[in-house]
Structures are given as structure tokens and as C-alpha cells.
Nucleic acid binder design. Structure first.
Ligand SMILES: [Zn+2]
Ligand SMILES: [Zn+2]
Length: 806
DNA sequence: AGCACGCCGACT
DNA sequence: GTCGGCGTGCTC
């Protein structure tokens, strides 16, 4: 890496303008700038943090402004990662600035902070106003808050959602001023259990209060670093004392290293199938050859042991390894497996960590101190050196796809990164995505199969229950079939645990009027509101809008309101009614607001504090769901009716995954699946646990319809708050795309499946292309068209390789 | 995307 | 007359 002296640098900025900006470098920065470092630059009236793409001496045609400050002396993005970012920008049609922002260790750090301060005249005005104006006037409130201390605009916006106008009015009058601040994260803000305190090498002298003196004395007596929380037992008020001593330079605070205390776990011997799979992977790693493996094995077939052995091989060869897991699976238990095998060589990248902890993990990875990285989707950007292996567990999982810009798929980015690095990739799944499995069939990937469960554990027995037949026989529309009730009752009797799945949140999915047929809709979206009984309100699952439960029809005033469609909350209630003595827990987005509750509920279930676990797909995913003897599926039909070509695949995956939770030890589990589509191939073949048959059937459908993996696909959506605007954009784009270029099929313009969402009208085009190249060329043409016609940057949404078509 | 500038209705 | 609405244009 050349370290010369440069006059200019090209900077990528987090703005929707897909171009670099050239800045001149002041004397002090000329020899320090490097491609991949962050830099603070003036941009219009603002200051922005961008990433340096290139340093050079070529005077640009336009006049330049001076860069302000270099943030990193060492690049945060290596040349390898910069190149990967460029690839993502091109492939997924996203501005490079957006891509790079998402690759940085702390995306939040990029967001510039603005702090509002009262001016002198503002202080006078505040005193006046506080005397004679109403206290709930937003202007008065803002002044009162700022009188105590300056506040960040983010804080003000949160405290007063409607204070925006008041703030601007006050600024115009000169009562308040704003200042751009580059927020340096204050390490002292972390909770005490996550901090270690140590005496500074040359502690400064000064006046101290009692807790400060005691803490200092303790640290002199017990040299080394101590966990701050634990110190509080020995020294009263240690936490505030440590923080104030740190400010005075007497002690230093640093983040606690994430430590899970588990004894180094002995490695299991691999069974023959595992060994055979491992040997192929090992050979590729040792040959430093880029190769992608698809490791296909049912739940409990021992994929993890293969991962662990492969990672070990990479480490022994002096290379590092990256393990990607779905968002929901990254739990302490999951991390613990890796700590126990690889000790402190492991770094965990997790959104639940504080900024300080994440920075610390990131630093350990870049320095090479950590050579095994466990992370989620964005973990693919971990700054590992000398990458030898990337494992993508549950490769079919939807959480690898980012549903906002840049809309990349972490699994696919992993493969591109590995290819550039000459590394291996293992894609693991019990239900591989059609794309991956097809790539294996075409020999683009190497297929490795792990047949059956390890140590001869039996596969579960799956029974389909035809709910149409059940209705004919009982003449009653019940939630639970007689067979399921009986099976659940027997488990409660025996003290065995059960899992009950219904992949739909809430109590009932809509509220309707018997008199006029009206269904209560969201005011922002063309969707019905879901009834949430516990919260006594109707909720929109897409925009969060909520309203009270109506007692009469909002349209015709009739009081004959009824609730339709069943959700997990109602299943829980009906189970309570059917089994009053059973202890029941529910696991879905409504009972799990943070990571903590998820773990608490599962731990309680594991310890036997509950008899039944009801929930949505959350109870099917995740590695730490305990196995049970009975799994009940209330309705396999949810999702099958979705206007989405992946509906069958998703249903198959979900049913297969939840069935995998059945069976303990040598006792085969039982899975009872209720459905009104017992003949649908996704349901039938999931019950038969026949992946191969499903794959072939679904592949035929995709081939016939020119869907992936037989076409490269993109969803192009235009949106606007004004319906006419959205329609005009879609018709204009329709003309541009007509006639469609060679080798491209274009469906649209059409209303999006959700025509109005978050107060925006939406129209879409589905583009299917025989070649990647022709698809990308067309998409770039569409982008250029949008820029030429001055569409707002948010009006056009391009989703390459979409997972959902909403 | 932000943010400034600029041009028109409706309030002191 | 000013205040404040949001259309338009620019950012190295
Ligand atoms: Zn009505
Ligand atoms: Zn809504």
C-alpha cells in the first residue's frame, strides 16, 4: 500500500447520488490519507463522514473544497472490502455510498449529530415566555428543555415528535443555534458489568471524594483490571467513582471482553458421512481453492460438527473463518459452542451489543486476535485477514436478504467474497433453497449429503389431518382437530412438552361487519388491521398503526362486528381453555420485544416450567429450541395463498423445520399437521419428509414459469404519496420498457400486491431475464431514466433477486 | 436525502 | 406588510 503525499482524494458519501466527490487535502492530511479510511468533509451546508476511495494529484475540473478531518489513520475498509462494496453497488443497483455505510463497523457513527444550544437572546426570551405563555406550547417546551442544557436534535425529536416546527421558528428568531458535532462515543456510558477498570499507568493527583479515594486505594492494593460491576461489592459506589476518576485521568475504563466460561469441549468423532463431507472441504481449504459446498442434512444430522472441523482446518492452515447464522439463531448458546471449541479466538458480531463492545470485537478481528467470527447478515463484511472459509448456516433463511437498501443477500455476497479471497464456502441447510440446490445439480457447487440423524436417532412421524374432512364429520369449525386435542391431552397427562405452531401473529386477522361486509383497514395501507386482544387494539403489522377496537361498524354503525381469522394469540387462549391446568408460553413478535425475552421464554421452557410452547415461525427457527415429543401445526395453509412464487418453498421449509423439533432421544417424535390443502405438494412432501421430490416438483414449476433459478429476476417498484404521481411514473416506465429488450420478460406495470403501504401508492414490474448481464443493463437504464426525469431518490426501488414481492 | 432559496396565500 | 406553505435545484 503506497503511503505517499496527495493533493486530492475521491470520497464516497452516504447520499443517494451515485458518484464520488473530490476534495482537496490540507497540508496536515496530505500524507495521512489512505483509501478505505473515513474522512469528515463539508457537503453543501453540512458536514458528512465518507469513505476515501482513491488518493491522487489529478486536479478536477470543478473547484474543490478542503476536507476537514481524517477519522481513521488505518483504513476501516481494506482494498478487498472496497472491491466487494463496488460489486454490491453494481449488482444490486445501490449507490456506493449507501453500500459502504452498511459495511462500516458502526453505521450509526456515520450519522452526524446536531446539537441545539440556547443563545443569549434565547435565554432572555425563555425567561419571558416561561412567565406568560401556556406550558404545553411546543415553543415553550423546547426553550424550557434547552434552558437546562444543550440537546441533540435526535433527543429533541424523540422527546417532542411535533417540535420540529417550533425548533425551526426559534432558529429563525435567533433564539437557538445548532452546531454539528462528530459524536465520539463515550465509553463510560456502558453499563458497569460490561466495563473493566484499571489504575492508569501514571495516575494524576487531585482532590477526590470518599468513594473515589476508596476505589483508588482498592486498585492500588489489587493491581490489574477489574470488572466494574464486581467491584461494587468491594467498594461502595464504585461505578460513579470509576467514571469520574476516568475523566480525571486516574483510572482507565475499557469494555469487558465478551467471555463465556465454558470448558474447552472435546471434539466429537465424525460419523462416516460427516467424515466424507469434511474431507472434501478440507482438501479444498488446504489447496487454497475457491469452492462452494452445499451441505444438505436434516435437523440433527450433525452439520455443526462438520462446520467445526472445517473451521479448525482453516485455523490450522493459518487462515481465518467466518460463520454466518440467521438473525434469530445468534444466541449465547450458539456462541457458546464456538467459544468452547475455539476459546478466545472467537469474535461475535451482534447487533444487541453496545457500540463499545462492537467496536472492540471489530478491532480484535482486524488485528487478527480473533480468527473465528460469528455473525449475522452483515457479518459477511467482517474485517478478517487471510480468509479461508465462510460457513453460511441455514442458507435458505430469509434473514440473509436485507429488505432495505442496499438489498443484498449475505449468502450470495459471501460467495463473491470467498471467490475473490480464494476461500471455501459451506452452505448448510436441511431444506436448501431451490437456487442453491440447482447450482449443486449444475456442478457449480459441490453437493455433500448427510443422510439421517446422528447416532441413529429416528426421524419423526408426520400425520396430515384434513380439516375439511374433520368439518364434515364433526359439523363444527374448530381450531383443534379431535386427533390433535387427544394427542395434546396425552402429553399433558404424561408431563411431556409440546410445541404448537401457527405462523400468524395476533388474535384474529381482521375485524368485519356482518351488516355491510366492511373490513377495518389501516389508514396508511391497503391492509386489514389485526386484532390484538392483550393490547385491546387493532394493529397494522406493516406500518405499526394502531387504533381502538370498534364497538360498531365505522361505516354503517351496525353493532354486529365479528372477528375472523386466527392468530397465535388466539391459539394460546384456546389451549388454555382446552387444558386449564397446562402451563403455556407464547413465542412471537408480540411476546418477544428484545433478545432477552426470547431467551427467558426458551430457558423456562427448557427447564420444564412450561408444558406447551405456542408461536409463529420463531419457534421453528433457532438452534436452541428444545426438542419435544409432539409438534402440532394448527394450519399449514397460511402462506400458501400468498401471491408469491416462493410460497410453496417457504411452506415446505417451515413445515420441515418445525417437524425437526419432534423427537427426543430414541423416542420418535410425532408431528400433527392440520390443513385444508392435504394434496398440495408442499404440504404433502413436507409430511413425507421428501426434500428430493419437492425439489424436483418445484423445479419443474419454476422452469415452466421462467422463475429463478431459471431466470435472473428483479422487482422494480415505483412509489409516491400521490396516486397520480405513482401511476404516471409506472406508465412512463412502462413505455420505456416496451417493447422489452431481447431475452427479457417484463410483467407490468401492475399494482403491487400491497397497492398502498405506509401512505404510499405502489406499482411494480417483475423482470425476468435469461442472462444476468442483460438484466443489469436494463436496471441501470431504469436508474438513469429516474435520475433524468428527476424522480425523488426514494420513488424507485430496485430489488435484485427478491425474496418477497410485497 | 437534506437543506437553502424563492415565490404565493392568510394572519398579526 | 410578515409568516410559513412546499416546488426546485444543488451538493466536490
Ligand atoms: Zn357495517
Ligand atoms: Zn398500515
Amino acid at each position: 500500500m503506497p503511503e505517499g503525499s496527495y493533493l486530492y482524494c475521491d470520497v464516497s458519501l452516504p447520499v443517494p447520488l451515485d458518484q464520488p466527490f473530490t476534495y482537496s487535502l490540507p497540508e496536515t492530511l496530505r500524507h495521512r490519507v489512505r483509501a478505505g479510511s473515513r474522512i469528515l468533509v463539508p457537503f453543501g451546508t453540512r458536514k458528512l463522514t465518507g469513505v476515501i476511495l482513491r488518493c491522487h494529484d489529478e486536479r478536477p475540473e470543478v473547484p474543490t473544497r478542503d476536507a476537514l478531518r481524517l477519522i481513521d489513520s488505518e483504513p476501516v475498509l481494506s482494498a478487498e472490502l472496497l472491491a466487494l462494496g463496488r460489486w454490491i453497488g453494481g449488482y444490486y443497483c445501490s449507490p456506493l455510498g449507501d453500500v459502504l455505510r452498511g459495511m462500516l463497523p458502526l453505521a450509526s457513527e456515520i450519522r452526524r449529530g446536531k446539537v441545539w444550544t440556547l443563545t443569549d437572546s434565547g435565554r432572555d426570551a425563555a425567561r419571558q415566555l416561561l412567565l406568560d405563555s401556556s406550558p404545553d406550547d411546543p415553543v415553550t417546551q423546547v426553550l424550557r428543555m434547552l434552558e437546562k442544557r444543550p440537546l441533540s436534535s435526535a433527543y429533541l425529536a424523540k422527546a417532542m415528535p411535533l417540535g420540529d416546527k417550533a425548533i425551526r421558528a426559534l432558529e429563525r428568531k435567533g433564539f437557538i443555534v445548532s452546531e454539528d458535532v462528530q459524536t465520539e462515543r463515550d465509553p463510560m456510558r456502558a453499563p458497569s458489568e460490561r466495563l473493566r477498570v484499571e489504575l492508569a499507568p501514571t495516575p494524576k493527583e487531585g482532590k477526590f471524594n470518599k468513594p473515589e479515594r476508596e476505589l483508588r486505594a482498592f486498585l492500588e492494593l489489587h493491581p490489574g483490571s477489574h470488572n466494574l460491576k464486581e467491584l461494587e461489592d468491594a467498594v461502595k459506589n464504585a461505578s460513579p467513582a470509576a467514571r469520574s476518576l476516568a475523566r480525571k485521568g486516574v483510572v482507565t475504563l475499557k469494555p469487558e471482553t465478551v467471555a463465556v466460561k465454558i470448558a474447552i469441549r472435546a471434539r466429537h468423532d465424525l460419523n462416516p458421512a460427516q467424515q466424507a463431507a469434511f474431507e472434501q472441504i478440507r482438501d479444498a481449504i488446504l489447496a487454497r481453492r475457491f469452492q462452494t459446498f452445499l451441505l444438505h442434512g436434516v435437523t440433527g444430522s450433525g452439520k455443526t460438527e462438520v462446520y467445526l472441523s472445517a473451521i479448525e482446518t482453516a485455523l490450522e492452515a493459518g487462515r481465518s473463518a467466518l460463520l454466518m447464522v440467521p438473525e434469530i439463531a445468534l444466541t449465547p448458546q450458539m456462541a457458546g459452542q464456538f467459544f468452547s471449541r475455539f476459546g478466545d479466538r472467537v469474535a461475535i458480531l451482534h447487533s444487541a451489543f453496545t457500540d463499545v463492545e462492537r467496536t472492540e470485537q471489530w478491532r480484535r478481528i482486524r488485528s487478527g486476535a480473533a480468527s473465528v467470527v460469528v455473525g449475522t447478515r452483515s457479518g459477511v463484511f467482517a474485517p478478517v485477514q487471510n480468509l479461508g472459509l465462510i460457513v453460511v448456516d441455514e442458507e435458505h433463511d430469509g434473514s440473509y436478504k436485507q429488505e432495505e437498501n442496499p438489498r443484498y443477500n449475505g449468502r450470495d455476497v459471501a460467495i463473491v467474497r470467498a471467490q475473490a479471497a480464494g476461500a471455501c464456502v459451506i452452505l448448510g441447510s436441511a431444506t436448501p433453497s431451490l437456487e442453491s440446490r440447482y447450482n449443486a445439480a449444475k456442478a457449480k457447487y459441490t453437493l455433500l449429503e448427510l443422510p439421517g440423524r446422528i447416532s441413529g436417532r429416528p426421524m419423526p412421524v408426520v400425520d396430515l389431518i384434513d380439516m375439511r374432512q374433520e368439518f364434515l364429520e364433526t359439523r363444527k369449525q374448530e381450531t383443534f382437530s379431535r386427533k390433535l386435542i387427544e394427542a395434546l391431552g396425552a402429553r399433558v397427562e404424561n408431563g411431556e412438552q409440546t410445541i404448537v405452531l401457527l405462523n400468524r401473529r395476533g388474535f384474529s386477522s381482521f375485524v368485519a361487519c356482518r351488516a355491510c361486509g366492511e373490513r377495518v383497514q389501516c389508514i396508511n395501507c391497503s391492509l386489514t388491521l389485526t386484532y390484538h386482544k392483550r393490547d385491546r387494539r387493532l394493529l397494522c403489522h406493516y406500518c405499526g398503526y394502531a387504533e381502538k377496537v370498534p364497538s360498531k361498524c365505522p361505516k354503517c354503525d351496525s353493532e354486529h362486528i365479528y372477528f375472523l381469522g386466527m392468530g397465535s394469540e388466539r391459539v394460546e387462549e384456546e389451549l388454555h381453555r382446552a387444558f386449564p391446568a397446562a402451563r403455556i408460553a407464547r413465542l412471537d413478535r408480540d411476546t418477544v420485544t428484545g433478545k432477552r425475552q426470547y431467551e427467558t421464554i426458551l430457558n423456562d421452557f427448557r427447564e420444564g416450567n412450561y408444558d406447551m410452547l405456542v408461536g409463529t415461525q420463531m419457534i421453528a427457527k433457532g438452534h436452541d429450541i428444545p426438542n419435544v415429543t409432539l409438534v402440532g401445526v394448527i394450519s399449514a395453509d397460511i402462506g400458501l395463498g400468498m401471491p408469491d412464487f416462493r410460497a410453496a418453498e417457504r411452506t415446505f421449509q417451515l413445515l420441515t423445520q418445525v417437524a425437526g423439533r419432534a423427537g427426543r432421544g430414541n423416542v420418535p417424535g410425532i408431528v400433527l399437521v392440520q390443513t385444508i390443502n392435504p394434496d398440495h405438494y408442499a404440504v404433502r412432501l413436507a409430511a413425507a419428509q421428501d426434500y428430493q421430490a419437492f425439489y424436483e416438483k418445484e423445479l419443474n414449476f419454476r422452469r415452466m414459469m421462467h422463475y429463478p433459478p431459471f431466470a435472473a429476476m428483479a422487482n422494480v417498484l415505483v412509489r409516491s404519496e400521490k396516486k397520480e404521481m405513482a401511476m404516471r411514473m409506472s406508465t412512463d416506465l412502462g413505455f420505456l420498457l416496451n417493447p422489452p429488450p431481447e431475452k427479457l420478460r417484463i410483467m407490468g406495470p401492475a399494482e403491487a400486491p400491497v397497492p398502498r403501504l405506509k401512505n404510499e401508492y405502489r406499482y411494480q414490474f417483475l423482470i425476468k431475464a435469461a442472462s444476468r448481464k442483460s438484466l443489469n443493463e436494463l436496471l441501470q437504464k431504469i436508474r438513469a431514466y429516474a435520475v433524468d426525469h428527476k424522480w425523488s431518490a426514494t420513488a424507485l426501488v430496485i430489488d435484485v433477486d427478491p425474496l418477497t414481492l410485497m
